[in-house]
Amino acid sequence: MRKVPVRVALVGDLMRLKDEKAKLAAESLRETLLADDRAVKASSYSVSGLLSSSYVGCTSRSANLQELLEGTKQYSIYRFNLSSCMYIDGNGGIHEVNLEDIEKSKADPLSPFSMSLIDGINQSEMRRRALVLFCITFLNENAKDAFLLSVDRKGFDVLGKVLGPIKDDGSREYQWKELRFTFKDEARDAEKFCQQLLEMEEEALKSISRFSGI
């Protein structure tokens, strides 16, 4: 695909927390993981099925952290004092990020479930066909394959295999292109995210039906 994953490089100092503060941090993490687990259990059957259908060899972030908290191995907790941040885009370009923007930012509400959503959708041929349909209907891109790249409360990014520009000899080849889809309303949880995908799919099918005269 000749596309590198988007990355963020963080530079700073690590400060080991003292025992009392480390215990508070561990308790805060435990409460966060419990909240994530409650959110999954409270979701609909289709959403919980999607989240649990990710690749069996890929252990979730929550499971890894839970194993750490409940395990017998000793661990230390460090505070990371950020001094600089660089954003590395999909083409390898490096962009400096203002530290004030980092300090003001908050974690996206979908971040605990992002990897499970991405993996669950990409492993399903039916769901990937829906992504292809989105490319054709909403962005007018002639796609024949697509993978979900990232998700957030405002939308999602797709890597689509679409027709490239016309060459001098009149031919066209398929090439991988990064595409962005924006939601009408923000998705504050995995349930809302999947609901918006379903609504987009219904809208795309209606659009194709009208175009084909069915």
Rank of each mutant, 00 (worst) to 15 (best):
M1L: 13
R2D: 06
L10M: 08
K18Q: 05
D19V: 06
K21T: 10
A22F: 00
L24Q: 12
L34G: 10
L34W: 05
D37V: 05
R38T: 13
A39T: 12
A39G: 02
A39R: 09
V40T: 01
A42T: 14
S46V: 06
V47C: 07
L51I: 15
R61L: 12
S62C: 13
N64S: 06
Q66W: 08
L69T: 06
Y78P: 01
F80H: 09
N81R: 15
L82K: 01
D89S: 05
G90S: 13
G92R: 05
E96L: 09
V97F: 14
I102P: 04
S105M: 11
S105E: 10
A107T: 09
L110K: 10
S111D: 13
P112W: 02
P112Q: 03
S124N: 15
R127D: 05
L131P: 00
F134Y: 15
N142P: 02
A143T: 11
F147V: 04
L148V: 04
R153F: 03
G155V: 04
G155P: 01
V162D: 03
V162S: 10
G164W: 08
K167S: 13
D168T: 03
S171P: 02
R172S: 10
R172D: 01
T182I: 11
K184P: 11
K184T: 02
A187T: 04
F193A: 03
E199V: 03
I208D: 05
S209R: 12
F211D: 05
S212Q: 12
